[in-house]
Design a protein around this nucleic acid. Structure first.
Lengths: 199, 199
DNA sequence: ACACATTCTGACACTTAGTGCAAACTTGCA
DNA sequence: TGCAAGTTTGCACTAAGTGTCAGAATGTGT
């Protein structure tokens, strides 16, 4: 709505950012478990109690913005014309999000390194993904006029998530021979035409 | 090796079982977070410290045996003849495991109820599943003579996991119109012949 | 039956995450 | 200016999980 945020919001965003930077640096230097909330708070010049005013858990510092992506997927999915098959709609929506990821590779790798190396963060990340799956499933079920517990919408949602997760993993692991959207597109094609064909 | 376990092993198994029973009952009665380790230990007639000798975390009481299933999958997968396509091998292996699940419905539901209702347990469960995916991916990669970071083995593994997870969810949610192996078989067929076809 | 190694159990002290509460302080707005 | 709402902090508290070590129970060999 307003271009200029109030002083209050600007300061809040600033503080949040300061905490995030301090934490990510300490995580990289000392490891996630070793970097205590107290140390992070001290580095970010706030009290430990204030840390929890911004983040519900230490894990959330790593995964914070990560969460906003779901909204983008759902939003995209809702915009697809009803003439498309469910799978076509899914594919189009997920490709948009893949393109988003593509633009932030540097920041993401920093975070993925922590996720991969820290069980508790990994667990939380999976939990978020599971939430996405639920929401995509529900959205899909409605579009298809089926029960939310129906097998099909869930399978479609889970497969789409599997596609993006596989692509992401490959994209991070290899030095990106292909762009992320290409990889995702690839996976979707395989799933679309049937896994029996895969060598 | 030996049919009769020593007194030591029998007692250990017995204690483990006692802890498990006490915990599961308290979880059901008070909720997972409300049931403290101290209360569980007291109910199982052991010291709190001993609880952690048997389980690394409270979550593991719910998910303990759950872990052994991976071995079954991998074992099955290793047994499939090399003439089968990767997908055929996956399908056959996962169907065996689905049949295993089928026989323990009652006990599973008790646990699933806790998993579904407790974020931290759910998170840990997902973490285990993620470990399975990694292992299945690696096994598959070897069978296919590809790099472990290759896109394809991961996509196949993730899809198979998606199939069993979707089936399980549906099987628990509905009052089992179909058997679990039927549901899994169904999902595999969809993935095999292509999701484009799905209504 | 005896001694010896291994494994199990418990007690104690400790670190850290996370919550509830209420008081102090800052900003937005009339 | 002054009041309402939002932000920051300190303090006290619960509970999970770890390290350490001493002592009890058990398995094994003689």
């Amino acid at each position: 709505m307003e271009e200029r945020l109030g002083l209050r919001e600007r300061k809040k965003a600033q503080t949040r950012r300061r905490i995030e930077d301090a934490a990510l640096e300490l995580f990289a230097r000392d490891g996630f478990d070793e970097a205590t909330v107290e140390a992070i708070a001290s580095a970010a010049d706030i009290s430990p109690r204030t840390f929890f005013y911004y983040f519900a858990a230490k894990e959330d510092v790593v995964l914070a913005d990560y969460a906003g992506r779901l909204d983008r997927i759902i939003q995209q999915l809702a915009m697809r014309p009803p003439t498309e098959t469910p799978w076509e709609a899914l594919r189009a929506s997920f490709l948009v999000v893949a393109a988003d990821y593509e633009t932030e590779r540097a920041g993401l790798i920093r975070r993925f390194r922590i996720i991969a190396g820290t069980p508790s963060v990994h667990a939380r990340s999976l939990q978020l993904q599971s939430g996405w799956e639920d929401t995509v499933t529900a959205t899909l079920a409605e579009r298809m006029n089926r029960e939310p517990q129906d097998l099909i919408p869930r399978l479609l949602a889970a497969s789409a998530l599997a596609a993006i997760r596989s692509s992401l993993q490959n994209w991070i692991a290899t030095e990106s021979k292909s762009s992320l959207p290409e990889l995702v597109n690839n996976c979707f094609t395989h799933l679309e035409s049937g896994l029996a064909r895969v060598s």
